[in-house]
């Protein structure tokens, strides 16, 4: 019960009115550091040195720890959210970049780009329990909220690998457009969204059949098609809207998640990589790799509120209530 409540808090965003008290943690790939942003003040409050080339970042279910992929240290660091000290590490395998956590917070699933595999880590035991061979350069990874699937996308093989979470065997592989980057499940676990960076598309899969139901392209007046390189994805809890970071197009696309079409674009910082909701899903935070800042978007007013300078190559971000 307690666990369920925790997940509901994190995923569903039942946090009450004083929502702006949240903190945003941003990994800075080039600075080997973690930036801490106070969302209420919209201000960078602290930068702490962490491992080399930090990229993927996940908040633990109890929100007391951050897991950060220190790619050039070949490890996932555990960072205490209060003291901001590195308190431990997890054996991620080589060059960890992105990873995802179980709905119950016990395991991490890590893409090892250089080794063409996914490493499964038991967080409490601090050990790797299995590796699953996948395609060339696994990148995007997601666990379905119902706990059935782990999905890995491989950038050079151009496939979605469907891994059964119980057996940890690949049960299916589906081809997608070139250079699949990120993937995300809808909260009801019925859809999987996959972005293809080079093709400039978003493919929506029906999870039951594991077949694509729609491929969505993007068109922005005044922006050439080559600049549209979709990366990070967030889908709201009601599956009303989804958001896709479009890289060097410097836009976040708003997708009508029912009609499955792009309906609007937010202009944010340069080369927008990754996205994260506020716990109440009223705001969206974006990491902008080239302009070295994060953008704060108010989703109710549909407006970009502010950009906050954070440091060099902001990569991933998480939001703690």
């Amino acid at each position: 019960m307690k666990k369920q409540l925790m997940s509901a808090l994190l995923l569903g965003g039942m946090v009450s009115g004083s929502a702006l008290g949240e903190t945003v943690y941003v990994t800075l790939e080039k600075d080997n550091a973690l930036a801490v942003v106070d969302a209420a003040q919209r201000k960078l409050v602290k930068t702490v040195k962490i491992g080399k080339r930090p990229r993927g970042i996940v908040l633990s279910k109890d929100q007391r720890q951050l897991y950060v992929a220190a790619s050039d240290d070949d490890t996932i660091q555990i960072i205490d959210t209060d003291s901001l000290k590195v308190v431990g590490k997890l054996p991620s395998g080589k060059d960890p970049e992105t990873f995802a956590m179980d709905p119950d917070g016990r395991y991490l699933y890590v893409s090892n780009e250089d080794d063409n595999q996914v490493t499964v880590i038991d967080i409490a035991g601090k050990k790797a329990v299995k590796t699953v061979p996948v395609g060339v350069e696994p990148e995007g990874i997601a666990v379905s909220p119902d706990g059935k699937w782990v999905v890995s996308t491989s950038e050079t093989t151009n496939m979605v690998h469907w891994i059964d979470r119980q057996s940890l065997d690949i049960v299916d592989n589906t081809l997608v457009d070139p250079r699949p980057r990120a993937c995300a499940f809808s909260d009801d676990s019925r859809q999987l969204w996959v972005t293809s960076e080079i093709a400039g598309t978003l493919t929506v899969f029906d999870v039951d059949t594991r077949q694509p139901v729609k491929k969505i392209g993007f068109k922005i007046p005044g922006v050439t098609q080559e600049k549209i390189q979709p990366v990070g994805i967030r889908i709201d809890k009601d599956r009303r809207y989804g958001y896709v970071a479009l890289g060097p197009a410097n836009r976040v696309a708003v997708i009508d998640a029912q009609k499955l079409e792009a309906v609007d674009y937010f202009l944010v910082g340069q080369r927008v990589w990754n996205l994260e909701f506020s716990p109440d899903q009223a705001r969206l935070y974006t990491s902008n790799g080239v302009s070295n800042d994060i953008s704060i978007i108010d989703l109710k007013q549909q407006k970009v509120l502010k950009s906050v300078a954070v440091g060099q190559y902001p990569w991933g971000l998480v939001v703690k209530p």
């Binding site: 063409n116 395609g135 060339v136 093989t157 496939m159 690998h161």
Partner: peptide
């Protein structure tokens, strides 16, 4: 090598 990693699945 890259082709064959993909080829395992195809």
């Amino acid at each position: 090598q890259d082709n064959n990693t993909t080829g395992r699945f195809t």
